[in-house]
Structures are given as C-alpha cells and as structure tokens.
Amino acid sequence: MSRLSVTQLIKKFGTRTAVKGISFELEEGGCTALLGPNGAGKTTTLRMLAGLLSPTSGSVAIDGKGTSEIASRNQIGYLPQHPSFYGWMTGKEYVVYAAGLSGMNGKQASAEADMILEKVGLKDAARRRISGYSGGMKQRLGLAQALVHRPRLLLLDEPVSALDPLGRREVMDLLQQLRQETTILLSTHVLHDAEEVCDRIIMLRNGEIVEQGNISELSSKYRQPLLTIQVERDPEGRALAWLQSFRQRSFVKELELRGDTALLTVSDMGTAREVILQEAGNQVMPLLRFEAGATSLEEMFMKVVSS
C-alpha cells in the first residue's frame, strides 16, 4: 500500500491550466523531488497535496483517505516557500501553538517543541520574537513547525531556494537526517539540490510530468557517451571547419558548438575516438583538449525543460 497516491490531478485558474492531470505514487520512506522550472506547477501541486487548494478534478489520498479530510491532515507537515509567522510570538510559542493545533496537550506540546527546536538549531533563539529572526532562522522555524507533530509525510516547497549558501547547507544537512525518519516530497528548480538529498525525481513541465524515476536509473538511462573537443583558433578557421564537419559523421548523434569547443554525443565511443584522433594527427589539428565522458542528468534536465 503506498503512502500517497495522486490521481489525475487537474487545477485550472480561469482559462489557464496550471496542473494538467498528473498522477504519481509515493512509497513509505525516502525523499522525492518535484523538479521543474518556475511556473511548472510545483507549488500548485504541493498546495493541493497539503489541502490548501482544492483541485479542479482528480484526487489526493494518503492511505486511501483524502487529504482534505480533517483526520488525515495530521499526517502531513507542510512548509510553504515563504512561510510567514506571527512576528509577535517567540519561536517557542509558535511551535507550541502549532503542536496544540495538531491536537497535543500543553505539556507534550512544550516538550516536543523544545526537542524539535534543538534539532533545527534554534534552541538559543527560542525565546526571541520571530520578527527579529533572519531568513535562515525563519526557514528552520518553518521546518520545526512542520515536524513538531511527527508527520508521516513532509511537503516542502522550495526549502532552500531563498537561503544563502550557509543556510542552504544547514537545511540540506537537516533534510539528510530527516529522510531517515519520514517520507519527504520537496519541490526545487535546482537539479543539484534534488540529487543531493533525494533518491527519486518527478520532473514537471507546464503542469505535466515529463519524466519520473529513481535518480540512479534515470541517470543511467540518459547517460550517453560524450566527447568534448577543444581546438586552438587559427586564422584560416581550418580547425573550426573540421569541428563542423563532424555533423556528417555516422557515429555522431548530436553536435553542439560552443565557440572553439565541440560537444559530441556519439553512438560508439570506440570508433569515434579512433577516427577523430587519427584525423587530428593526419591533418595536424591544433588540439587543446580531448575528453571522453558521459552526459549527466543536468543535460537531460536542460533538454527536457527547454524542449
């Protein structure tokens, strides 16, 4: 039985369709990233999952129960992209209030709040007013309020996008710890962040899922032999013409020229390497760099997103 199942979720705002019928399932445990450029429908999807926005059609269920039902709300911890708190409260007061709203009694709420604030590193600031918190502290307080009732599913909307490198590092480390305990679904537009903490990605573009799967599977699926050849510029443009000529070779699937560097996606690395190096030697080409590697997930992501 899967933890979260999303079926044919559609959201229309007026005439614009932000989410065009997406379906996916999340198993218990692990971390999944909703990956996509701005405007892909990530936030809209997360808000529907959190029950803050009602879908135009389709359903979201946790263990078979809809998330708009009061009872299943306690299973979700939600952190919006720009969380806002009551500035007049202290950090501790806020987390205790949040715990109370989730049904904990006073003593338990206070104990849980202390524990979670220590975990996110806000122990020293717990008695200060939230209005005086920095961006990173607010993000960590947001995590604390999302975690205080021990949810089984954690929904995080762009948890690190608004943070400086240091704050980003802290939150990433925290997420590494958390993924051992809860199921995490986070949205991001940075593939690197997704690769760091998640084991699964769901790629969104224009409100549709374009690719999903385990990161390791996807990267082997999209791994293709890649040759990088850089030449010295010569006045006659002989070397550049040589690079251009690769377009017609049978073993070249794709050629991308970036100034004096050619990126070749090839079908057979062995032949490609042999042929090119031989030609370079025979025609005395001013080679600067010759590198054999593989395309990364990043290139796949860029291709998927921009096509």
Binding site: I76, P80, H82, A98, S102
Partner: peptide, 14 residues
C-alpha cells in the same frame, strides 16, 4: 493574505 492562515489551516483545524 499574509500567509499565516495557511500554516494554521494545513493542520487539523476546521
């Protein structure tokens, strides 16, 4: 509109 209601209404609050 300030966003504080979201964090309340996402919890089991009617």
């Amino acid at each position: 509109y300030g966003g504080t209601a979201a964090l309340v209404l996402v919890r089991p609050v009617k």
